[in-house]
Design a binder for these strands. Structure first.
Lengths: 309, 309
DNA sequence: TATGCTTACGATGAGCGTAACTATG
DNA sequence: CATAGTTACGCTCATCGTAAGCATA
């Protein structure tokens, strides 16, 4: 039994004439006649009484026509949903973000995406890399944005690398180090340090930079996985923040934070990547969000030591 | 989009493998593969991700599969209803009965039919012929049972004549006329007469029978379209009832009413007929009720002047 | 190499339009 | 004879099964 056939039945019931119904369903009149005969045979029920003047629905036919309408309604819903999914007008996108990507992308990504596709639901997970990778593998997330160096070597994960974001040091406007001609790495240790929880490779890089002895820990005063917390702390104290310029570009623009240029510091980079499940198809809305996130992370002024507009 | 296709989609989603799903929908595995490709193309959406180990439903696919399930559910309902209609397990039968047919058929017809098809609704209309004919033409009734001589000459009505039921006279057990050797028509006039409202042809027949002058009316003491009312009245008085034997066969059997054999009375017959709309198909359950009514009206002991069992 | 999905190919039949037929007012 | 539905006929395309192809563990 085809949906097409049921449409023929409903059209004939509503038009009351084979000729008119045939026109409505874009069929020749004989073809419609056969189509109706076919479904009557298939169901073993006479649905219509043919008279010289018009066609009447039988009692049994009325029941079937009612049922047919409901099938057609559901079928139309399916087609409509397919269309909406394609045009990103329905659906749900679930994104996992690491601390820096979250700071860089939020809330611009959400606002931008919600403006483009207001009826697509967004679910955000801000968490540790390993927790998000587990969720991705369990198909609880569509994609995640983290530093690719923390990723396990799992062929189920497809990694789309993004441009490198350099880590830099930032202090409040008017910070003692801001007015210094030349700042060296050791100078940084005179001030409290704040940072997000650093993955091992970042931890050792900072450890080397600050020339801390191997058995000593980095003297971090405040560690928090929410960069906003760090930023507001640094704005009000003499503490120094290690972060990407991209994650503080708004504060740089507002001049509430300023970069501390360290003369003898090697570049410590963040290598963000978009991570999806290999061989799994994203929903169309998910593709859009993925592209948007990638674009925003690549387009942001990476080395903004001067205010951006 | 065919219901068949949607079934393929749901089967594949549930089985997680083309081979197993193909078996479930009785198709070769390549055929199923093409069928899925076809609907993916038709919707413009990838519904499944094929991997070496098994098949996974995409995010968009999950939405579509859910929709497909609902379409299939409605389609199954339709097929099921068609089956139930055919086996008289659902539906509604609407019957119009004239006074005598009602008395003869009720409640046996209802009980018998309800026993055969407990889930088919029954609607009864007990009314004047012209009202019921109007309802029949308006498709508010499936068929009516009345004297065919009251029917207008309307080609939209299809008439299935039944056996003739003779009208006779009845009185209470022990009625003065019951013990008389010979009763003549004029003797009837000594007693009150009760009857249902008589159609014109019956009225004039009775008028002639009782040898009433043309300008005089038939002296009817009680006229009621409910024969049961008439019967209980006659059982308790010396009134005489004009009715068909078939409509009082239970009272004859119980000997609460007895026939009054009139020597010089011509036979006055009731010509019942089943009336349906010409060229309109009854529901299967309606056909059964129609046949049952016709059978009961033809099988009843028409001339039962002696008790029936 | 075994497993599992896809592509190729030929055959079948469902479904279409045109045209001829039939019934009815 | 006009109107409306059905049957006849030939064609096309959707869909099938079998067999070969191809990717992956």
């Amino acid at each position: 039994m085809s949906v097409r056939r049921l449409n023929h039945v409903v059209a004939l019931a509503e038009e009351g004439s084979f000729a008119r119904a045939a026109e409505r369903v874009h069929l020749s009149q004989p073809a419609l006649s056969r189509s109706i005969q076919a479904i009557e045979d298939e169901l073993g029920l006479r649905l219509f009484d043919r008279a010289a003047r018009g066609v009447a629905v039988t009692q049994a036919g009325k029941t079937i026509v009612e049922r047919a309408r409901r099938v057609l309604f559901e079928a139309n819903c399916l087609v409509r949903d397919a269309e909406l999914l394609k045009t990103h007008e329905i659906g749900e996108v679930r994104i996992g973000l690491g601390p820096y990507p979250a700071t860089i992308l939020l809330p611009d990504l959400l606002v931008g995406f919600a403006r483009l596709h207001p009826n697509v639901g967004l679910k955000l997970e801000l968490n540790h890399a390993h927790a998000m990778i587990d969720m991705l593998l369990a198909e609880q997330l569509d994609f995640i944005v983290i530093d690719k160096r923390v990723l396990p070597d799992n062929p189920a994960l497809a990694i789309k690398p993004l441009r490198r974001h350099d880590g830099r040091w930032f202090g409040r406007a008017g910070h003692p180090l801001a007015s210094r001609e030349a700042v060296f790495a050791v100078d940084l240790r005179k001030f409290p340090l704040v940072t997000v929880p650093l993955p091992p490779f970042m931890h050792s890089a900072v450890h080397r930079l600050l020339k801390i002895r191997s058995h000593e820990k980095i003297p971090v005063q405040l560690e928090c996985n929410d960069v906003r917390v760090l930023k507001s702390f640094v704005e009000q104290t003499d503490a120094l923040l290690f972060a990407t310029a991209s994650s503080v570009h708004k504060e740089l623009a507002a001049r509430t934070l300023v970069p501390i240029a360290v003369k003898d510091a090697p570049r410590i980079g963040l290598a963000f990547a978009l991570v999806v499940l290999a061989d799994r198809t994203l929903s169309p809305a998910g593709e859009v969000a993925l592209a948007l996130a990638g674009q925003m992370l690549n387009d942001v002024n990476l080395d903004a030591v001067e205010p951006v507009k």
